[in-house]
């Protein structure tokens, strides 16, 4: 069996390496993906030349992700939500009844433990607001710089995970309880799907944001796309934040939500 695995791996490796030679050179302007086939321009050319005129968003990646390929991103968010819900369902049904913890069980009275608590606690108290502010910046500034809903949501979720690691899971759950994170996860998807359905209600295709200038005050069709992208990214950030913390809180406490690591 071991030999069989080795042969299969070597064979696949040789096959993959032999295919590398067929790739276009990195950044080659004449490759079909960049130059298009024959007289027809490629889709990447369209993105590079027309994105700013279409949407007024300088970061093409965000525009492709949230507007041109918005359908894909919506269900990516649903996949993350489904992953979180399935981890929640498996661990919480295996973990037994939830024992809510109102106070830390074992109070470490040794001097050494106290020093550690002060150092870690103070560091986290200083760090967490900065991390959360940066996460909000990443979400809101995704139009102009790298970032967006996924990255900002992960950073925001990580700040709650840091709180749970520094104190205990009970403290973090006090700030961001189970009911609250599940609600937030659903609300995020509803925001995204709501933008899509709103376009349909105004007699356009799903996620065709242009028409939203009718209900957004003081916008034209171009800025409506830009603003809708921001709204959609906020929805993604809500879901990702909630699901990241949901996964951590269930994994670290084996589904019992008691004291964590």
């Amino acid at each position: 069996m071991k030999w069989f695995g080795l042969i299969a791996t070597a064979f696949t490796g040789i096959l993959l390496l032999s295919a590398v030679g067929d790739f276009a050179r990195f950044g080659d302007p004449h490759s079909p993906a960049n130059a298009g086939v024959g007289d027809r321009p490629s889709v990447s050319q369209y993105y590079i030349t027309d994105t700013y005129a279409d949407t007024k968003v300088p970061n093409i990646v965000t525009a492709v992700l949230a507007d041109y390929r918005g359908y894909d991103t919506m269900f990516e968010t649903v996949v993350i939500f489904a992953a979180g819900i399935s981890i929640f369902a498996i661990l919480r049904s295996l973990g037994g009844p939830v024992v809510p913890v109102s106070h830390p069980q074992a109070i470490d009275t040794s001097v050494d433990g106290d020093h550690q608590r002060i150092i870690i606690g103070t560091t986290c108290r200083l760090m967490i607001p900065v991390i959360q502010l940066f996460a909000l910046y990443v979400v809101a500034h995704g139009h102009h710089s790298p970032g967006g809903g996924f990255q900002g949501g992960v950073i925001l979720g990580a700040s709650f995970i840091l709180l749970a690691l520094a104190k205990d899971l009970g403290t973090a759950l006090g700030r961001f309880s189970e009911k609250r994170y599940l609600t937030l996860g659903c609300v995020g998807i509803m925001i995204y799907a709501g933008f899509g359905l709103l376009c349909q209600a105004l007699e356009r295709n799903l996620l065709d944001y242009e028409i939203l200038h009718r209900i957004m005050p003081a916008t034209d069709a171009v800025m409506a796309r830009s603003h809708s992208m921001l709204g959609v990214e906020v929805g993604v950030a809500f879901t990702v934040t909630a699901i990241m913390f949901a996964i951590y809180s269930n994994l670290s406490s084996n589904g019992r939500l008691d004291h964590g690591l």
Partner: peptide, 23 residues
């Protein structure tokens, strides 16, 4: 953008998830 996602998800959160499971 991809590098940012990798730094946040791959190096940050998934490491914490794996440590939480290993415990």
């Amino acid at each position: 953008d991809v590098a940012f996602t990798e730094a946040a998800v791959g190096a940050g959160v998934s490491t914490v998830f794996m440590i939480a499971t290993i415990y």
